[in-house]
Amino acid sequence: MKAFLILTVLLIGGFSLFIYSGIYNVAASEPHLDAVEWIMETTRDRSVRRHADKAPGPPEREEANFREGFRHYDEMCVICHSAPGIEQSEISKGQNPEPPDLGEEVLKWSREELFWIVKNGLKMTGMPAFGLSHSDREIGDIVGFITRLPDISPQEYAGLREEMGRENSVGHSH
Score class of each variant (00 low, 15 high):
residue 85 G to T: 03
residue 97 P to E: 07
residue 80 C to W: 02
residue 76 M to A: 03
residue 104 E to Y: 15
residue 105 E to L: 06
residue 95 Q to N: 07
residue 98 E to K: 01
residue 98 E to W: 03
residue 95 Q to V: 12
residue 69 G to K: 00
residue 73 Y to R: 06
residue 69 G to N: 08
residue 71 R to H: 11
residue 66 F to I: 10
residue 88 Q to D: 13
residue 105 E to W: 03
residue 71 R to I: 13
residue 55 A to G: 11
residue 58 P to L: 08
residue 62 E to Q: 15
residue 93 K to N: 06
residue 71 R to N: 14
residue 103 G to H: 13
residue 55 A to H: 15
residue 89 S to R: 01
residue 56 P to T: 07
residue 60 E to N: 11
residue 70 F to D: 12
residue 74 D to I: 10
residue 86 I to V: 06
residue 82 S to M: 01
residue 78 V to N: 01
residue 67 R to M: 15
residue 109 W to N: 11
residue 84 P to C: 07
residue 61 R to V: 12
residue 84 P to K: 05
residue 109 W to P: 00
residue 59 P to V: 13
residue 103 G to S: 14
residue 103 G to W: 07
residue 100 P to Y: 04
residue 84 P to T: 08
residue 94 G to I: 06
residue 73 Y to E: 07
residue 74 D to S: 10
residue 83 A to E: 00
residue 77 C to H: 07
residue 113 E to G: 06
residue 75 E to N: 14
residue 89 S to D: 07
residue 59 P to R: 00
residue 112 E to D: 07
residue 82 S to L: 04
residue 61 R to F: 02
residue 68 E to H: 14
residue 97 P to G: 10
residue 93 K to I: 14
residue 111 R to E: 11
residue 75 E to F: 08
residue 105 E to N: 08
residue 111 R to K: 15
residue 53 D to R: 15
residue 68 E to F: 06
residue 64 A to W: 02
residue 66 F to T: 11
residue 96 N to A: 08
residue 85 G to W: 01
residue 97 P to W: 02
residue 79 I to E: 07
residue 59 P to Q: 06
residue 102 L to Q: 14
residue 56 P to N: 02
residue 87 E to Q: 13
residue 75 E to M: 06
residue 68 E to T: 14
residue 70 F to W: 00
residue 99 P to D: 08
residue 79 I to Q: 05
residue 53 D to V: 08
residue 104 E to S: 12
residue 99 P to E: 10
residue 56 P to F: 11
residue 92 S to E: 03
residue 81 H to V: 06
residue 111 R to M: 06
residue 61 R to Y: 05
residue 59 P to T: 04
residue 91 I to R: 14
residue 99 P to L: 10
residue 84 P to F: 05
residue 96 N to H: 12
residue 61 R to M: 04
residue 77 C to W: 02
residue 84 P to E: 09
residue 83 A to G: 08
residue 90 E to G: 08
residue 108 K to E: 12
residue 89 S to G: 01
residue 96 N to M: 10
residue 88 Q to Y: 05
residue 62 E to A: 07
residue 107 L to R: 02
residue 102 L to G: 06
residue 63 E to P: 09
residue 71 R to P: 05
residue 74 D to Y: 05
residue 108 K to G: 05
residue 108 K to D: 15
residue 80 C to V: 00
residue 67 R to E: 14
residue 67 R to K: 15
residue 96 N to K: 13
residue 97 P to K: 04
residue 58 P to V: 09
residue 81 H to S: 04
residue 76 M to H: 13
residue 91 I to D: 05
residue 93 K to H: 07
residue 57 G to P: 01
residue 65 N to L: 05
residue 57 G to W: 00
residue 67 R to N: 15
residue 53 D to A: 15
residue 89 S to Y: 00
residue 111 R to D: 03
residue 64 A to I: 03
residue 93 K to M: 08
residue 90 E to V: 11
residue 94 G to P: 04
residue 68 E to L: 08
residue 68 E to W: 09
residue 57 G to S: 02
residue 72 H to D: 14
residue 97 P to M: 09
residue 97 P to L: 00
residue 69 G to P: 10
residue 107 L to A: 13
residue 105 E to I: 01
residue 94 G to L: 10
residue 78 V to D: 00
residue 100 P to V: 11
residue 99 P to T: 12
residue 104 E to H: 04
residue 64 A to K: 13
residue 96 N to W: 12
residue 100 P to S: 14
residue 59 P to A: 08
residue 79 I to F: 01
residue 70 F to T: 12
residue 73 Y to N: 02
residue 106 V to M: 13
residue 62 E to W: 09
residue 98 E to D: 09
residue 111 R to N: 12
residue 64 A to M: 14
